[in-house]
Write a protein that binds this DNA or RNA. Structure first.
Lengths: 246, 246
DNA sequence: GTCCTATACTCCTCTAGAGGACTAGCTGAC
DNA sequence: GTCAGCTAGTCCTCTAGAGGAGTATAGGAC
């Protein structure tokens, strides 16, 4: 089997690219933790035996990717997915009229099974490849608002199969980060409309055939790899979705 | 009167910032036209009397902003608002299943009238302030897909009241740009579902009470000023909306 | 205790240059 | 005519440095 060239050592790549991967690995490994300052540019340049400008270019790339954060005069820091803003970055639902919601959530089911067509296509897997399936109900004021089916590719999300269900009593993306060190950087949503099937209607406490909104999301990591696919259903009348396009 | 510091000459700004503005001006002025190659980096650096790296940093900024485009070995080019990508940047509708649509459109009505509550709030006007109202039907394969009501603040969009209706036979944002020199840089959409009223159902050729999607959009210029507000209705079953979140 | 200042540290800007990678077009051998 | 190879032009990578700007802290003057 041909060995896949490692981005960190592949000599065909420019030095700053390889540096970028080397630095990213230190963050991934936990050698540098969120909130920490990393060594000074000049020290890193000396350590890796490159010129300052080259090291700056590597760091710049990670800043753009959102992994690092520079503060002039203070240092360069590993960015924490700060809980004020970005925590709700991917949570686009709002109540009718646009009030932000403070939902609670409940894990309804958790099992391992084949990905199936839609999830496989989004995650770059074969339909029969195993994934971890989560089913989760989101409620507002104890009223069911959204039912999610979530597919997570499997060697990588294995730990989540055994995490106590009580730990799911929070947003999922911070959970991925805490338990697996997996960060969601980007996502695509597709919003459409359908009629509720029985399987969807029951947990939402609506009637079969009632209008529902369907949101299909694929979420990606910093490196562009698809990490999560989900399909969400909610009663159409109570639904509102906000986006900013730039 | 205090003179506003010109970004091109304000000495407090770094050189590369001032260069960026100087280059952008040449594009704005039409000295360099879309599709043209601009002079080589080394020539520009010599012309402005700066080091190559400084000029590269200035150009890099314009590339990120989307004004320039580099092609290794060939040159640096003024980017044309290519009809493939950016033209449809704000066009998020897709056919069921995600196929991109090639819609035609027809101007149904054009009149001047008070903004009303919703449009006024979005545009920062008083409800009785006059705006130009457009009503426009978008069709795919001669089938009505979306009916739009569009509010445009009035001294600014005055020219659009007299533009021949035939000119509306294209996308609106390029029309704003061509006729008024007004560029849309950013927008927010809010998506919700409702039942069709008679006024909406008739042009869409659906029944009153049928489920429809409602998209409310506010569009902004480069300076953050709201320029357009619109409310769109479409038959829910045929609707799909794609977003990328980052 | 409070305030100022010196200092040491960080990232930021800018210079000057060498060599590599990529592209396009010309030239000459066939 | 075709095609390989040469060449000049472009952007890209990388080096080695100097000085500036912003931040935090320790010491000393009051």
């Amino acid at each position: 089997m041909q060995s896949v060239p490692d981005a960190r050592t592949d000599e065909r790549l420019p030095i700053y690219q390889r540096l970028k991967d080397a630095l990213a690995e230190r963050i991934q490994d936990g050698a540098w933790k969120p909130g920490d300052a990393i060594p000074a540019e000049s020290d890193l340049a000396a350590e890796f035996g490159v010129a300052l400008g080259t090291m700056r270019k590597a760091i710049e790339g990670l800043v753009v990717q959102g992994l690092l954060e520079r503060r002039q005069g203070r240092g360069t820091f590993v960015r924490r997915a700060d809980l004020g803003n970005t925590l709700f970055r991917f949570f686009r639902h709002t109540g009718k009229g646009g009030r932000p919601l403070a939902p609670t959530q409940r894990l309804v089911a958790r099992r391992t099974g084949p990905a199936g067509r839609a999830a496989a296509a989004a995650l770059g897997l074969a339909p029969e490849d195993p994934v971890l399936w989560l089913k989760r109900l989101r409620l507002v004021d104890d009223e069911p608002l959204v039912i999610d089916e979530i597919a997570l590719p499997l060697p990588r999300f294995e730990k989540l199969a055994t995490v106590p269900a009580a730990d799911f009593d929070e947003l999922l993306y911070p959970l991925y980060e805490r338990v697996l060190g997996v960060t969601i950087a980007r996502a695509t949503d597709r919003i459409a409309f359908a009629r509720a099937t029985a399987a969807v209607a029951r947990p939402l406490a609506i009637a079969t055939g009632d209008p529902v909104v369907v949101i299909e999301r694929t979420a990606f990591g910093h490196d562009g790899e698809p990490l999560e696919w989900r399909r969400s259903h909610g009663p159409a009348e109570r639904f509102s979705y906000d986006v900013e396009i730039r």
